[in-house]
Design a protein around this nucleic acid. Sequence first.
RNA 1: GGGCGCAUAGCUCAACUGGCAGAGCAAUGGACUCUUAAUCCAUAGGUUGAAGGUUCGAUUCCUUCUGCGCUCACCA
Length: 553
Amino acid sequence: MTWTRPGSTRSSPGTTCSRRSITGSTAPPSDGLEPGEEDPMSEELGATEREIVAQRLRKAEELRQLGVNPYGNGHAPEHLARDLHGRYGDAPPETIALDPGDWSVAGRVLAMRSFGKAAFLKVRDRSGEIQVWVKKDKVGEKAFEIFKRLDVGDVIAARGPATRTKTGELTVEAATFTILTKAIRPLPEKWHGLADVEQRYRQRYLDLVSTPGVRETFEKRARIVTTIRRFLDDRGYLEVETPTLHKPEEAGGATARPFETHHNALSLDLKLRIATELHLKRLVVGGLERVYEIGRIWRNEGIDRRHNPEFTSIEFYQAYATHEDLMLLTEQLFHELAVKVTGSAQVTFQGRVIDFTPPFPRHSMLEMGARALGLSPEDALAGRGLSEALSRAATREGNSEDAWKLEKASRASPGEAIALAFEVFCEHELPADRPTFVVDFPIETSPLSRRRDADPRLVDRFELFVAGMELANAFSELNDPVDQRARFEAQLAARAAGDEEAMPFDEDFVRALEHGMPPTAGEGIGIDRVAMLLTDAPSIRDVILFPLLKPRE
RNA sequence: GGGCGCAUAGCUCAACUGGCAGAGCAAUGGACUCUUAAUCCAUAGGUUGAAGGUUCGAUUCCUUCUGCGCUCACCA
């Protein structure tokens, strides 16, 4: 089952770099530029910055004259900051002095406190931070000449024994010191860092350097993907990759507007996939009974805090399973994700604690939607008194958008009306402190899922809601080819009636079902949303390294 | 697309009711061999987002535009 993006989107607020941002091409590794000299950077930089760049280029040249390549290579540090902290922990200076070791570290200089003939550098590598103490009498005249050309932001290497300074900080007391990479642009201001939100997304490299927690967010995102992969691998699933370029007649498996593109040599119009669903189910037909794909999908829709035009989904399919089996699996998976990524089953998201301990509460879309309209589930499904109830609700509803939605619902099928009533009245009443399964979906909302044996007006489907976000969508898959053909025909009719997002008729997919797909259940999860939840990120842009932004100018 | 808000030095922000555009950090020069936003002295850095208007005088008031933020809608 494809993960379907719910909720509201809106037109992009659009974002452009502020005029004072420092972006653009890098300067050639040439002599220092005189102010006003022709240079690709000079047009976009203010006088002060141009001056800084010119000075730093000059220092790079001076380093060359000292025999140091300011962009040299071949120097690999032997240790990480983490190694030192792991080795010494809180050990007092006397203990460290018994075995100070010989530590070779490298990293970016984040701060420098200089005393003329000595200085303390805050250096960061991939594992963390370590202080480096450069003293003229320890590193020697030549290395100290190199040190004089150092700026905050440069990448350096140092080697020497460990020590603990008077102020208690674990430190490498440099016996050798050199500059590995000369930065010619300055880092963001040290107190406030990158305050311009848009610049943080646009220049993520600076964000990663100077905004606390950003690196951790993306480390957690990686752990989420790894955890899901391992979880499914351990259960006998096979990871696959299916096409991201779809032909016009391929349905993909969701209702959304696609991006369109073109293959020149084949003279073929193509679209970027909006879901992985139908290819994966073809693979189940082919005997890959447990299969999953983690990958990028694209939807040509609005952008907001929960929506980016390209995002990552995982879909997985398990033959001989039902949607009930997947509910249990989903509870296990999310519990494991919470514990492995945040360290606890109780996750704090935007100031609220959400408890991921199974079992998760379940709520019926049918019952809640019908009750909100003052109808019995049976009457609502049968459409008895439905349009009157909707009109009453619309009149009662002060909120004009909701009234408009209800008005629209009164012209829709009973199933769609129930889903709309649920959305308007019930979605915000779902528990805020627990992940929640919504079940009992009307068939009209689900063109690819299996009818319920006990009531063919419903489908065997659930969605997982957490903190008001739809995180997962799953159902027992429709494997009756005759029924599937009829559902596609209904989609064609909807398209003819003006529904731009109705699915195309995917003949080859029906053909695959005609060859026989074992009874199967499938699920889709929005990885970005999960990452938001587990990193406490208020916007999807905070968990996507380079979110789509409006171009400058 | 609608509503609300913001735009001043490279960065973060001041500037009272319309009266000489400022501070901290960053930068540069100098002092300083245990600092944690190091400290001290000095220097430099501005078309106040753009265009127009009111006024003796506009960063300040008005109009339009541009950009950004928040929010609502379209949209599953």
